[in-house]
Design a protein around this nucleic acid. Structure first.
Lengths: 133, 133
DNA sequence: CTATTAAAGAGTTATAATATCTATAATATC
DNA sequence: GATATTATAGATATTATAACTCTTTAATAG
């Protein structure tokens, strides 16, 4: 029961873009160096973020990744869902009956966490963040 | 990013004990049948619960598992921690700096969920639960 | 056309979850 | 005390998922 490192990488790259260059394109290499992860692996994660609309990409020379116009609205939850998928963290019931009391409790607790993650924006953190991240 | 099935089994057995026989000993087999899991595997999980003080056990003929005296105070969070350990669901920071903004957000969100899980007691559910679970 | 950079696919390794099997220890009943 | 019953412990196997690599393809700027 842990969030994946991929989610961790995704959150950090988003913050990186928000802090250093919200409008300028950045390639994978500098970010991969910063996070000490291989560029190819990080690019997989970034592709997922692109598909979820969390960042924009352009190939070719001078290309790279950039935050989208609505970047200031992007929340932690958005990014997490982009990587982990929209799945609930509890697996459903073991017996056959339809309305599982345990499931209900777990889901409602999860929703409390998600409310918090939805309120927290990357942009908000970028203001507080030191230049080094 | 999911809670383990072991946690799911643990929650269900606790509710099972609370609903059917808070004071009487029950062996592994009937519970394993109910949950459709092998008795040996379930017993591993139950042993973890014993060590965490969530249930009491006695070996030998007529033995089995039973809820402890303070069972009405046992929360979802207690049970989850007994199985998953006390670990945070976020892995910590990637860079070297000490005070990770991202980590802080994740942890505080997690705490919101835990507050909810701490308030929800098995006993409370047992009252609402149908006899079949 | 060429250099650069993202995307996609296949495959590998590592780690953790899930489960099984066997042996051991403890207890009640006879 | 012998036997049946039940939990506990250890080792091991299996499966699933995460984490990562390598290689190829596609797109774009100059």
């Amino acid at each position: 029961m842990k969030y994946s490192k991929a989610t961790n990488y995704a959150l950090h790259t988003m913050l990186y873009l928000a802090v250093t260059s919200p409008n300028q394109r950045v390639g994978v290499q500098p970010m991969a160096e910063k996070l000490k992860v291989s560029p190819t692996y990080l690019s997989k994660i970034l592709t997922q973020l692109v598909k979820a609309g969390m960042i924009e990409s352009s190939p070719g020379a001078g290309g790279g990744y950039k935050l989208p116009p609505h970047w200031e609205e992007i929340s932690f939850l958005d990014i997490i869902h982009a990587i982990e998928g929209p799945v609930s963290l509890f697996d459903g019931c073991l017996n056959d009956h339809p309305d599982c009391l345990i499931q209900n409790v777990m889901v409602s607790a999860e929703e409390k966490m998600e409310e918090e993650l939805k309120q927290k924006k990357i942009a908000e953190l970028a203001k507080k963040a030191p230049p080094v991240l």
